[in-house]
Simulated assay, not measured.
Amino acid sequence: MMRPSSIANRTLHTGTQVNSQATLLKLNEKKKEFDAVAALERTSSAFLERISGLADDCDVMALAGEVHGQVSEQWPRMFHILNLFRA
């Protein structure tokens, strides 16, 4: 009676291990890619918040400039009124 060969089983088992290792390597690479994209998304969101804050500050400064211009525009009239009182 002949025994079945165990070489085929060893090859299949070794091939499965290699395939499994390759799959794990690919999975690790994809996880690294996902983590990098997630970090980029978080960084982009933080950058957007900072830029939006700067835009808000610029709007406030623009309004302050308009108010400053309006106040400066009134000074000649104020001096004219003060000169009328003095005279």
Rank of each mutant, 00 (worst) to 15 (best):
M1V: 02
M1C: 02
M2R: 09
M2V: 04
R3Q: 11
P4W: 02
P4Q: 10
P4F: 02
P4K: 09
S6T: 12
S6K: 10
I7R: 03
N9C: 03
N9L: 03
R10I: 03
T11P: 00
L12C: 00
L12I: 06
L12Y: 02
L12K: 06
H13E: 10
H13A: 13
H13M: 04
H13L: 15
H13V: 05
T14V: 02
T16M: 14
T16Q: 11
Q17R: 05
Q17G: 02
V18W: 01
N19M: 06
S20W: 01
S20T: 10
Q21N: 13
Q21Y: 00
T23D: 07
T23Q: 14
T23H: 07
T23R: 11
L24V: 04
L24F: 02
L24C: 02
L25Y: 13
L25A: 15
L27V: 10
L27F: 00
N28T: 10
E29Y: 05
K30I: 01
K30W: 02
K31N: 07
E33M: 06
D35N: 15
A36G: 07
A36W: 02
V37W: 02
A38S: 14
L40M: 08
R42L: 12
R42K: 15
T43A: 13
S44C: 06
A46L: 02
A46T: 05
A46R: 00
F47G: 06
F47T: 08
F47L: 14
L48T: 12
R50W: 08
R50P: 01
R50I: 08
I51P: 00
I51A: 14
I51C: 04
S52N: 12
G53H: 05
L54R: 09
L54D: 11
D57G: 07
D57F: 00
M61Q: 11
A62V: 04
A62S: 09
L63T: 15
A64H: 06
G65R: 06
G65D: 14
G65Y: 02
G65Q: 09
H68N: 15
Q70I: 00
V71I: 15
S72Q: 14
W75F: 09
P76A: 08
P76E: 12
R77E: 09
R77S: 13
M78C: 06
M78Q: 03
I81A: 12
I81M: 13
I81L: 13
L82M: 10
N83D: 12
N83V: 05
N83A: 13
L84R: 09
L84M: 14
